[in-house]
Write a protein that binds this DNA or RNA. Structure first.
Lengths: 237, 237
DNA sequence: TGTTGTCTGATTGTCAGACAATCTGACAGT
DNA sequence: ACTGTCAGATTGTCTGACAATCAGACAACA
């Protein structure tokens, strides 16, 4: 056996995108971008024709979407884009609180790399917020800009879960976040006070850096409840 | 519209088992029962022939198995039964601790129904343990008996997560438990001190009934760490 | 009027067969 | 010892097809 893992090439990878994965990615994009509204039925034949792939491929992609919670399947009635209910948002936030909260509590014992990752995510987010505000001042607020801001924001929250050191908890958090992105895609451009949020996150990390775990825990709770209320009221209109 | 939900028939349901679901169930059973060892490649054509279904159906079933974490797929190399590593067991237990721990902490504020469910699960488990011990004394220990004991035991732990009132957290816990069942299926009949465990669970619930949440929390931690060590040492041999 | 039976078109669930792309393993060449 | 090449096997994807089921409309009946 010629040794199956040369550490020198540990980070190399080929992207190896199968047709199904590309199809899923395209559907996800369409959903998050708001091209298809919630509740829209996703017909297999129509999608196959318009995406230029076969029906089995579409089927597999739809199954993955359903597994992610982005769509729901009714037997013999096909799958359609999930519609985020207020109750499901509440549930996602409750789950988020459990996951991210335990991440925050684990800060003192956390891996140095995990902590560094939290800092990196915060930095990326705040940088994007600054850039976004500058663009907004010029009246150039793009759809991708909003999307990217969302993604970086949620990535920070997921990085908190990373403090637990558990890949599975992180994966769960990522699933939750996907559902949140769906909900956020529904509320049309939710008047978002982005820099407030950025400041709030910075404050959270500062509490952590001071090893004020309990303070950070309480702060996170308040932050998450605010976010929950904001999303739900935005959904109602 | 003739009204879409008559409350009088709220609990009625037809089982509506598609071919894919039955296929998945059969594969799961085969895995948990130990008929296929971990690492066994699951060839699509062979399975299709032996199960009497078509290849696309098998493919879909395998995809679901992979999504559950019971199997892994290597591109162009097919899917094979997952092999539980010590590291993944540790991770599952860490995640379990986060989920079940927050369930225990939520006991005082929990829904009455959720608490009742915990009691029911405990009762079902202890009853099964007693019955199992009686059967063992008669020298009649069946494979299904062990399996059922496992299932009831893990159902109790999931019911703890139900105290959070979050369906999503419960779903996550169920996924974790599936992986644990896989690991337990590998260790051949792990000499299990079943009644000790039953006593331990009863003690946990008694602490909860006394509203000694902190005590129950600590107790659960010890219990989970014991379980983790037991499984890992059993896996090593 | 309101309920029930039935028909039609559409869509999904499942199947069979096929082909290209890719992996594994072995063998030959340098 | 390393590299290139080939055959066999398996997956990834496609095409085409058929039965099962669903939604909606429409007629028949109390």
């Amino acid at each position: 056996m010629p040794g199956n893992a040369d550490p020198a090439f540990a980070t190399l990878r080929v992207e190896h995108t199968s047709t199904v994965e590309r199809t899923v990615a395209e559907l996800r994009r369409a959903i998050f971008e708001g091209e298809v509204e919630s509740g829209t039925p996703l017909r297999e034949i129509a999608l196959a024709e318009s995406l230029g792939v076969s029906r089995p491929t579409v089927r597999e992609a739809l199954a993955m979407l359903v597994a992610e919670g982005l769509a729901v399947r009714l037997p013999h009635r096909g799958v359609s884009v999930a519609t985020p209910e207020a109750e499901s948002v509440r549930d996602v936030c409750r789950a988020r609180w459990v996951l991210e909260g335990s991440g925050v509590l684990a800060w003192p014992d956390a891996d140095a790399e995990a902590r560094a990752h939290v800092r990196r995510c915060l930095e990326a987010y705040t940088a994007a917020v600054r850039e976004h505000e500058a663009a907004e001042a010029r009246g150039a607020a793009s759809e991708q800009g909003y999307q990217q801001l969302n993604t970086l924001h949620l990535a920070f929250h997921v990085s908190l879960v990373g403090l637990t050191g558990s890949p599975r908890l992180v994966a769960m958090a990522e699933n939750l976040v996907v559902e949140l992105k769906l909900a956020l895609a529904q509320v049309e451009r939710l008047a978002r006070n982005a820099h407030d949020q950025a400041d709030s996150h910075t404050a959270l990390v500062e509490l952590l850096e001071r090893d004020d775990v309990a303070g950070a825990h309480a702060f996170l709770r308040a932050h998450l409840e605010d976010a929950e209320d904001e999303i739900i009221t935005a959904l109602r209109l």
